[in-house]
Design a protein around this nucleic acid. Sequence first.
DNA 1: CTCATTACTTACATTTTTTATAGTACCTAA
DNA 2: TTAGGTACTATAAAAAATGTAAGTAATGAG
Lengths: 120, 120
Amino acid sequence: MSEIKQTSTNFSNKSALSDECPEAYASTIIGGQWTLVICSWLLGGKLRFGELKKKLPNITERMLTLQLRKLEENMIVRRTVYAEVPPRVEYELTQIGYDLKPIIKELENWGDRHKKLTGQ
Amino acid sequence: MSEIKQTSTNFSNKSALSDECPEAYASTIIGGQWTLVICSWLLGGKLRFGELKKKLPNITERMLTLQLRKLEENMIVRRTVYAEVPPRVEYELTQIGYDLKPIIKELENWGDRHKKLTGQ
DNA sequence: CTCATTACTTACATTTTTTATAGTACCTAA
DNA sequence: TTAGGTACTATAAAAAATGTAAGTAATGAG
């Protein structure tokens, strides 16, 4: 996740697409496997690392960390560390993160309809 | 793309997530690198394989084929083959594919705002 | 017969994403 | 002194996605 080769064709393709197509740009930001689900949980309010982990039973701590870091880099999520022991870290959506709400809702809606249609 | 290991943790994680979270389900369907851009072009009407290729200058024929096949499998796109030589194949959105329109539009919107905000 | 056209397919290589497993620092409470 | 909780890190490996390069079928034009 952190080791992207800026010389690869894949990288330049993604960059070019992101430059020209804001929907592709958005997709690279919210496209991770756990990204939307994390955001979806955070729509309900701030959560600690461990709380998020409980909501996503199968995620590894590493993946959760990576996804949260990426979300933080992309300013979707704000991270607050409390200087306590044991540590307490809270995650919450920023404004632009919260702005994903209608998109997430529509995706849920569309997903449900698609499932019914295809009998999944 | 075609060789997904149904015994992998990744596969079972994705399945479980898709079962529970329609937004994650939707994301696995429209999450490919070129998927949304292809759909976005098709919103304007049916296009031939070669026409799509021209719209996406950097895509390889292999990737275009794979993405279109996946979209077809997922009933987002309808493929029509004309028995001519040289062959002619047309792609167009299905109803549920066309229903992605508002989502794509909102993603474009959100992407633009996000770009401005982060100075990309 | 040879060539051009179109929409692919195939085999393989590379890059990116995801998972597995085992740690770490810090303080508190027993 | 030891154990326990919290939010991580480090390293390796597996899996998935994407890219490269070459080839194919059919047929009509020349």
